[in-house]
Design a protein around this nucleic acid. Structure first.
Lengths: 216, 216, 216, 216
DNA sequence: ACATAAGCGAGACGGTACGTCGCGTCTTTAA
DNA sequence: TTAAAGACGCGACGTACCGTCTCGCTTATGT
């Protein structure tokens, strides 16, 4: 999916097997390239994202790029993963608070071009089966863990029944936020950042089965 | 969003102003090209979808393509829209039945590559503000009408409170189905078609339960 | 071999089959490119002769280059052939005069970098059997005709016996001039242009003397 | 020129200054590399002759290559020189015999790809003044000595006048053989090896001013 | 014995050209 | 005027090789 992800594991790109002989790979090069890739993406958009451009900007030979990433799609995936911060899941003390915080964070994520491209990549991956499953798994794991932990806290607090349907709760929460952004007119997207709560609040309320504060 | 769309309006592509003098446009050419575009998409995937390929397959000059569609993205949009059937919204006599039917139809839509590409295009549109709003509007309209009509029927039947939050209901229903597919492992997608109800049933139940409570 | 060549036949590069439909090839482009190729060669030498460079200089897409020439070697061959003037074979009224004129012309040809590269290409062709025979044939033809005509005039004038060994005469004449240049120290080459007769005179005398005797 | 050369001087490649401290160079490495270079050249031809390929085949690091040869051209020159045998100049007892033997040897040399590449290099050298003069000098020396010795023997025997024009004799002999090969159709080259005398005999006869045995 | 100095295999590095391909435009002939 | 064909300028693709630059190791000399 298209969700901010931790990236805690080093994600060794296409690391060499052994530390064996030969000149070792420049460890700073990878970060350098990923940064350049993001800048490049920011400047020229997705269509204009080229390996030549990244190499030029990072002052790096194309060979070094292809030594690590087999295609420009893979480079882009890594560049985005590298900078994507984990979804902050603060313990606000209540499900309502937790979910609202999560939803707001998610909403902002999708309003950000860089967050949005993550979704796009996820969509592409779903399209080409032959592509990267790693990305997909990580998302699924987060999907199954990060949010699930939040719900478990709620159960522990007694706010939620132990047999509450975690799956549907998570999917409706994430999905509704996603589709809400997707359905927004492009021009309305940027200004909406300031009123995130107004947009996602009703969705959280609905999912939490609370008295409707404001109908959508 | 990425929802099957009617395409009832002729969608004049880039129709000529006047019937004036000169050779008239071949009326069959458009349908011919759209069909070829779909076949081409099916064969080579999204990455391999090229204007040259479509022209070759349709035995048509590229000029004729660019005379009607300003870019290959636009051609692809039209090709997909042309074959996308409207979301069937049968009146099953109950909200539960209506929503389940809708969800199943949606689920199948997203499992189909052709349906999925619609989503992808929607995502792209959200990315480039300067791109096609027509597509977006149409989706929004459908979003506001097709599903809303279903809910109105439920209200009329007394199944739903008149002030039920239509927005969240629709967004959670659509969004959860979408994200459910998105989170599926690529390999699981195809076999899932046979058990659509198993996948979307819980989501519908969940949404419907909230909908009933919210409107109280 | 590496001899100035007429190039009278149009040498259609890789001409299209039919004048049928479709945009015709720009007729000026070819000459434009050939000129640019020669300039490029002059500036950067053989090693630095690149397709990218030629395209850049000619303000032409690489596709147009590869539409006409299958490789950079072939382009270079054509560029050189296009500017190579035919070996002037003036009728001076005597074999001695004819042969001296021819030898001087040949000497100058080999002293010129552009003439020399022709030899290099010929050598390359002899190296790769799979390469262009057209070049080779043309040289052979010239070898068999241009010089042979000169000798025939001598026979007609009674200066040479009818059964004079045309082959050896031509081969020794051409070969000795070639190897004479080849054996010169690089630094001596340029200044030698002014004293062409001093260099080739003895060779012509020698060959001519044998030619007269052989035919006896 | 492009003539088989002795290579008697060790041709120190780029020998180290002092025997001082440090690991001494592997003495077997050089011969090993030269052999691999020749094999590589034989397999892939001139265009496919690469430093990486030589290093791979010789199981040697590229650094060792560049420690000895400053460029791949220089390596190729040395590889070829190392295996090129000196022009055998047997004393057959007569100029005619000597010259025929020499011409046959020369003919075979030019028919061999390895011999031909020597010519090619000579041509390249004549093209770049800044390149290797050593090669050129060696050729010139051989040109001035090896063949000249043969002619001197003829003078001593009384077969040749003391004031015979050595220069033209040598240049016409060498040159005519060279150009004869150059003018041959590529396909005819290999089969010609078996009939060397038929090809070069007339040339020798002509140069020696003998009664023509067979017109070319 | 142990530092110093080079050679060596391996392979990463910044460049740059290769030949291919797709874009969207332009230019011709035929209908 | 449109249609089919296809040439055009442009520029990215991914590969390959250049010659240089580390690495960690090995193999000598000189103290």
């Amino acid at each position: 999916m298209a969700v901010p992800v931790a990236g805690e594991e080093p994600d060794v790109v296409t690391a060499r097997r052994q530390p064996g002989p030969g000149r070792p790979r420049d460890p700073s090069l990878e970060a350098n390239v990923l940064a350049a890739a993001l800048v490049e993406y920011g400047h020229t958009g997705l269509a204009g994202f080229t390996m030549d451009g990244v190499a030029r900007r990072a002052k790096v030979g194309k060979s070094s790029l292809y030594l690590r990433w087999p295609s420009k799609e893979r480079l882009l995936v890594d560049a985005i993963e590298a900078q994507t911060l984990p979804l902050a899941v603060p313990d606000t003390g209540s499900v309502a608070g937790d979910m609202l915080a999560l939803a707001v964070r998610l909403f902002e994520h999708f309003l950000d071009p860089l967050g949005w491209i993550t979704l796009r990549i996820a969509v592409d991956i779903a399209l080409n089966t032959r592509e990267l499953d790693r990305f997909h798994e990580r998302v699924t794991v987060m999907h199954g863990e990060t949010a699930r932990a939040m719900l478990q806290r709620a159960v522990d607090r007694g706010e939620l029944a132990p047999d509450a349907p975690f799956g549907p709760i998570i999917e409706t929460l994430f999905g509704s936020v996603l589709i809400h952004v997707l359905a927004m007119a492009p021009a309305d997207r940027e200004p909406a950042r300031a009123h995130a709560t107004d947009h996602v609040g009703p969705l959280v309320d609905f999912v939490l089965e609370r008295a409707r504060v404001s109908g959508a």
